[in-house]
Design a protein around this nucleic acid. Structure first.
Length: 866
RNA sequence: GCGAGAGUGGCGGAAUUGGCAGACGCACUGGACUUAGGAUCCAGCUCUGGCAACAGAUUGGGAGUUCAAGUCUCCCCUCUCGCACCA
């Protein structure tokens, strides 16, 4: 063993060993229990960042731990390789997205290997490869057959800078999730997946995912957004047209005094046609379509609308309702039409006030009566029905059902459930994605590509166009094809590509049999490995990726391809990696190397101004607070990098970067190294003996205590990893054990001492091995073991070694700690009680006062109440 | 506005079921070893008072339940995240 801990040498040695020994290679083995552990695969952006290191370190600890526990562990890695950055980078560098992507993959793979992760690299997949997207196209055809994939023209989210359409889930507060620019509504023909068919099932199973964080479940529930209400039809005056409306407040129908249609609603132009309002209405529609969604979504945004010139009739009250088009009515929710009840809806109230529309109270609070003219805000609580004909006097809550029933009986409406979730728009007008396997034929319409013709290869010999517009529509060799149905040679291929979230919705199944040539996956492999037992990744995918994956799994289930509905049994969302930001009033955010110390303060090197220490924020290039994992690996090595990521915070919390924290990890690892060296090189006899594993009663003195502490530590570390993934407390428990080892004076006359020391040292190394695997392998080997530590079983503890030799009893008087003493574990309550009462310090507090009550908690404390 | 989560020393964080608040680590202070120390070892380290023994206070604030509350209940404050005109 070297005098000094040399991470570079050790880490290279063991990484080579792991690679050549194929220790992480796994196959299905029905005789063994499987454990499928997966982390979210990265987009191959070029190099790994601290977020990846943290995510994958957490996963690696669990994978190694489970492997040592005897599970058959599947731990794969791959690349989410399609997507816009590759295209943009290729345009900028006059290169090709494929070249850029594969180079990045090569680089990131070697960086991941440098951290020592236990992946089965034979299962690596890249979603941009034809053998991957081939099966995605195949599934698309199956979904198309079932009506699950369809094309329709509709208003979609268009991002101008990205020159493509976005799914609803990819629009954040009206902005593009990728470039942050406003998204516009545009009418385009698009391909959709009918995820709304599964809205109810996806929602129902939210209650059956106990291994998921509550936060993620809640976000999914809200996203699906189920509302129970009624659809009511309002006849348009002087026509046969009826306007269907969705409402959750059918109890207030009698108070509906006007109607609001979304500007995109087809009836708006129809109703205003030829009327004097026509011009104004059309201007309004134009203005709204240009208005981006971000400003439409702002809270303070004023409600506005235009009268269409048409009226409809309230089917219950018989009242005449002017029809407006209003900016707050959303085409994509419900039916795109709102029955406005100003007295009982704040939005409608504001609109009515602005345009001087009728306000009719139909629900009074239980204790007072409302005066419509005097109201300053709407009344939205429950109350008593008024002005509602036969429903007067009823509680509004009961009227919900009564009115819904009445509507149904009279053919005016029906009970309905509405979801916020909309179908998943998957068309993208970009090049670097999987082609949609469809053909447009003049005579036959839209025709699917025959299965045998798959995969439809994304042509690689293309010149990318400035601005990012896809080269596919103008690439005749790609577009021009024969219609599979009528043979017409003028048929044209679909040139839209699929959203990259399609690839990530089934990659976990592909990992089970990555090279499978005749289908998406080998059935037996998926039956054995799936579902994923533990999935780990960032919370930013709480809706997008995780909801799509749940949906896809249901589609596969209903196609009879898999036996389960939920892909991920347990989910861990790890926190972000953060670091302090530094900014200069003149130059904005600064890198740490752009700052120098002067007179106790810190100044900007460029202008000399005093810098401001900003908030602690998620590491990002723009905030200049990133730490490159490569410099860490270079300076400290993989084990210390891993140790820091795990020790500084529990995995679900944000991790704050601290250089000193890394130094602390470095010190600890050196302490372990020195302990092993001292015990093995200086006390040669521990090498020669086998570990002591017998009953602690054979031991005495400090060795007995150390032995017991070791067993307690094994238990603590095991439960911390197993139950809670609290690696930080697991590590601190081992630190305590190591500190205890340093406290051993040594007694060369005790023949059992070397054996106990060996047991403890082995336990330290075994317990740390999932966390700092390189060092552990090295020490394990130094202790004379011939096989990898990964093949050693996880240490177990003896129950009989967990008992304490003596118990500390604390004594309280009136709940305040006043004294403490130790007692043997077999002392009974009476003994403990009298010992407490006779305690000198306690006597001082009781001081002759009458004792009202004495509480004795076994093995813990005595509380004397006076 | 709605929903979720969080608030504990100078800092990151422990305290799994109501039972010694502050484990472990960082930073800091003193000492040892040393040519040197940004290595290592030993000791101290919540706050207030006190040389000390000791006493008092203390888990965002306020009430309550209990022999006993960081932990349970209610009210309030602050922060973070998610959704946001959803009819």
């Amino acid at each position: 063993m070297d005098q000094k801990y040399n991470p570079r040498k050790i880490e290279e040695k063991w990484q080579n060993y792991w690679e050549s020994s194929e220790l992480f290679k796994v196959e299905e083995d029905p005789s063994r229990e499987k454990y499928y552990l997966m982390e979210m695969f990265p987009y191959p952006s070029g190099k790994i960042h601290m977020g990846h290191v943290r995510n994958y370190t957490i996963g690696d600890v669990v994978a190694r731990y489970k492997k040592m526990q005897g599970y058959n562990v599947l731990h794969p890695m791959g690349w989410d390789a399609f997507g816009m950055p590759a295209e943009n980078a290729a345009i900028a560098n006059k290169s090709h997205p494929a070249k850029w992507t594969y180079q990045n993959i090569d680089n990131m793979r070697s960086e991941l290997k440098r951290v020592g992760f236990s992946y089965d690299w034979d299962r690596e997949i890249a979603t941009c490869k034809p053998d991957y997207y081939h099966w995605e196209q195949w599934l698309f055809l199956k979904m198309h057959e079932k009506g699950m994939a369809y094309r329709k023209e509709s208003f979609v989210n268009w991002c101008e800078p990205c020159l493509t359409v976005l799914a609803n889930e990819q629009v954040e507060a009206g902005m593009c999730w990728r470039c942050g620019k406003p998204v516009r509504q545009q009418r385009l023909p698009q391909w959709f997946f009918r995820i709304t068919d599964y809205a109810e099932d996806l929602l129902a199973y939210c209650d059956r995912l106990p291994g998921w964080p509550e936060k993620v479940i809640t976000m999914q529930r809200n996203w699906i957004g189920k509302s129970i209400g009624a659809e009511i039809r309002f006849p348009v005056e002087g026509t046969v047209t009826e306007i269907p409306v969705f409402t959750t407040r059918q109890d207030t129908v009698f108070g509906a005094t006007f109607m609001c249609l979304a500007p995109e609603h087809p009836l708006v132009t129809e109703l205003s046609k030829g009327k004097q309002q026509e011009k104004e209405v059309n201007q309004f529609i134009d203005r709204m379509s240009l208005q981006d969604r971000s400003s439409r979504a702002v809270d303070t945004y004023e409600k506005e609308g235009v009268f269409t010139g048409a009226y409809c009739t309230n089917p219950l009250s018989g009242g005449r309702m002017p029809i407006f088009t209003a900016n707050f009515a959303l085409m994509e929710y419900g039916t795109g039409a709102v029955m406005s009840v100003p007295a009982h809806d704040q939005r409608d109230f504001e609109f009515a006030k602005k345009y001087n529309l009728d306000i009719v109270v139909v629900v009074n609070p239980f204790d007072t009566q409302l005066d419509a003219g005097a109201m300053t805000e709407s009344f939205t609580d429950e109350g008593v029905m008024v002005n509602s004909g036969r429903f007067d006097g009823m509680k509004s809550r009961d009227a919900l059902d009564a009115i819904a029933g009445y509507l149904e009986e009279n053919g005016i409406g029906k009970k309905t459930v509405s979801y916020r979730l909309r179908d998943w728009g998957i068309s993208r007008q970009r090049y670097w994605g999987a082609p949609i396997p469809m053909i447009h034929c003049k005579t036959c319409g839209i025709v699917p590509v025959p299965e045998e013709a798959l995969p439809i290869l994304l042509p690689e010999d293309v010149d990318l166009l400035d601005g990012g517009r896809s080269p596919l529509p103008s690439l005749e060799s790609f577009v021009k094809t024969d219609c599979p149905r009528c043979g017409d040679s003028q048929a044209r291929r679909e040139t839209d590509t699929m959203d990259t979230f399609v690839e990530s919705s089934w990659y976990f199944e592909r990992y089970c049999s990555p090279g499978f040539k005749t289908g998406m996956f080998k059935k037996e492999a998926v039956d054995y490995w799936m579902p994923v037992d533990q999935y780990i990744g960032g919370v930013e995918h709480a809706i997008l990726h995780l909801l799509y994956s749940r949906y896809f799994t249901r589609v596969l289930h209903d196609l009879g391809l898999v036996k389960f509905k939920e892909p991920f049994t347990r989910l861990l969302t790890q926190g972000m990696v953060c670091k302090e930001t530094i900014s200069c009033p003149e130059h904005g955010f600064l890198f740490p190397e752009e700052v120098e110390s002067k007179d106790g303060g810190r100044i900007c090197k460029m202008c000399g101004a005093t810098v401001e220490l900003g908030r602690i924020e998620k590491m990002s290039k723009s905030k200049k607070n990133v730490v490159d994992p490569r410099t860490l690996l270079e300076k400290y090595g993989a084990d210390i990098t891993r140790l820091f990521c795990l020790f500084a915070a529990p995995p679900e919390k944000d991790l704050e970067w601290s250089e000193q924290g890394v130094e602390g990890g470095f010190r600890f690892i050196n302490r372990v190294w020195r302990l092993a060296r001292e015990w093995m090189n200086d006390i040669e006899d521990i090498k020669a003996v086998s570990p002591f594993t017998d009953h602690p009663d054979r031991l005495n003195g400090e060795i007995r205590a150390l032995y017991k502490t070791t067993h307690a530590t094994i238990k603590k570390v095991t439960t911390d990893i197993e139950d809670r993934f609290h690696f930080n407390t697991a590590i601190s428990a081992v630190m305590e054990l190591v500190n205890a080892c340093y406290g051993i004076d040594g007694n060369r006359d005790d023949p059992l001492e070397p054996q106990v020391k060996r047991f403890t040292l082995e336990a330290v190394v075994l317990l740390l091995s999932p966390i700092i695997p390189h060092l552990s392998e090295e020490l394990w080997e130094a202790m004379g073991h011939k096989e990898s530590i990964l093949l050693a079983p996880w240490p177990t503890y003896r129950e009989d070694a967990l008992t304490k030799d003596d118990l500390l009893i604390v004594v309280q008087v009136n709940g305040k700690l006043r004294s403490r003493f130790t007692v043997s574990p077999d002392a009974d309550e009476e003994t403990i009680k009298s010992m407490a009462m006779e305690d000198e310090r306690i006597q001082k507090f009781i001081h002759g006062k009458p004792v009202k009550k004495v509480i004795v908690v076994k093995e813990k404390l005595v509380n004397i109440v006076i």
